[in-house]
């Protein structure tokens, strides 16, 4: 279990994280989403012990991560920018990882090289951007970490490799009970695999929720009204509302059945509710905080 308690981090006069508290359960795939510059990468770097927070604590199963090499042997940070030793091959990097990660699995490493189809005797500097990312994924998964922290790992991988990475990730979670924190802007990608989602905006935590609960409480409603419809009669908060002829389309907060009953009670001839995708939830949450492109163009 990862416990993040009241983390604050500033760089000069920039406050990057402001009193963040989140708990990540064992065996969870935890999605970290947020606007650009919201502090996702800073949070991941604090989690893996690269940065020390100004205030607050981070513990893994009760152990602090800061200057704790034994615990760091259980944690892999898949950074957005890979670091490889100068002029090294993947095979040589394998030696470095095996020295630091006590559970490094040689046979898994070989199997992963085959799966991704990488030649591990070739210099990494000759690899394309996507192949370097694959190399980093191979090293990370072969290290069999208890905790895997991913920063935009889907970025730069082609669709087939993304699917392969997702399968390997869920397999490590199902087989070994690995815990993963996945920061990404690719919301449709992480929607399939995450069970919890935390949203950061302007250095603050907007929410940390179970994904199914989150999706169950905000809906797009399409309804047809013969007469007038007064949105204020609806007992649920309306995020957005547009009317075209007799058709009203709105985004409403609340549970499916309760909203449907309320819309019908308001005189709807027809009413249909569709759950929002994670991307739509993200945009709605951002809009409510005044962060939307319509105010920019």
């Amino acid at each position: 279990m990862i416990q993040i308690n009241g983390i604050t981090k500033t760089f000069g006069d920039i406050r990057s994280l402001d009193k963040i508290s989140v708990t990540v359960g064992d065996g969870s795939i935890f999605g970290l989403i947020g606007s650009n510059g919201s502090g996702k990468s800073t949070l991941l770097r604090i989690l893996c012990g690269i940065f020390a927070p100004d205030e607050g604590t981070v513990t893994f199963d009760g152990q602090p991560v800061w200057e704790n090499p034994a615990l760091k042997g259980e944690i892999i940070y898949l950074s957005d920018e890979q670091y490889f030793l100068p002029a090294s091959t993947l095979y040589e990097m394998r030696g470095l990882y095996a020295a630091f990660y006590p559970r490094f699995d040689e046979s898994l490493y070989c199997r992963l090289c085959d799966l991704f189809g990488l030649d591990d005797r070739r210099r990494l500097s000759t690899f394309s951007k996507g192949m370097k990312k694959q190399a980093a994924v191979i090293l990370a998964l072969a290290s069999c970490p208890k905790y895997l922290l991913c920063d935009e790992t889907f970025d730069g991988l082609d669709p087939v490799m993304r699917q392969l990475f997702k399968r390997l990730l869920v397999d490590a979670v199902a087989e070994r009970g690995m815990t993963a924190v996945v920061a990404s802007h690719n919301l449709s990608e992480i929607e399939d695999i995450c069970d919890h989602i935390a949203l950061l905006h302007r250095s603050e935590l907007v929410f940390a929720r179970e994904l199914d609960d989150l999706r169950g409480e905000i809906h797009t409603v399409q309804a047809v009204f013969d007469g007038e419809f007064d949105p204020t009669t609806l007992r649920y908060p309306i995020v957005r509302c547009a009317r075209r002829g007799s058709m009203v389309t709105m985004v409403v907060r609340g549970e499916h059945d309760a909203i449907e009953a309320s819309v019908r009670a308001a005189g709807a001839q027809f009413c249909e509710l569709i759950p929002l995708t994670l991307e739509e939830i993200f945009i709605s949450e951002m809009e409510e905080r005044g962060y939307d492109y319509t105010s920019l163009i």
Binding site: I29, K166, R167, V170, V173, A174, I193, C194
Partner: peptide
């Protein structure tokens, strides 16, 4: 098994468990 289905569908094992 939860693990086999998770790997086949590439979805979260916790979701399948649920």
């Amino acid at each position: 098994s939860v693990r086999a289905l998770a790997a086949e569908l590439a979805i979260n094992p916790n979701t399948i468990q649920k």
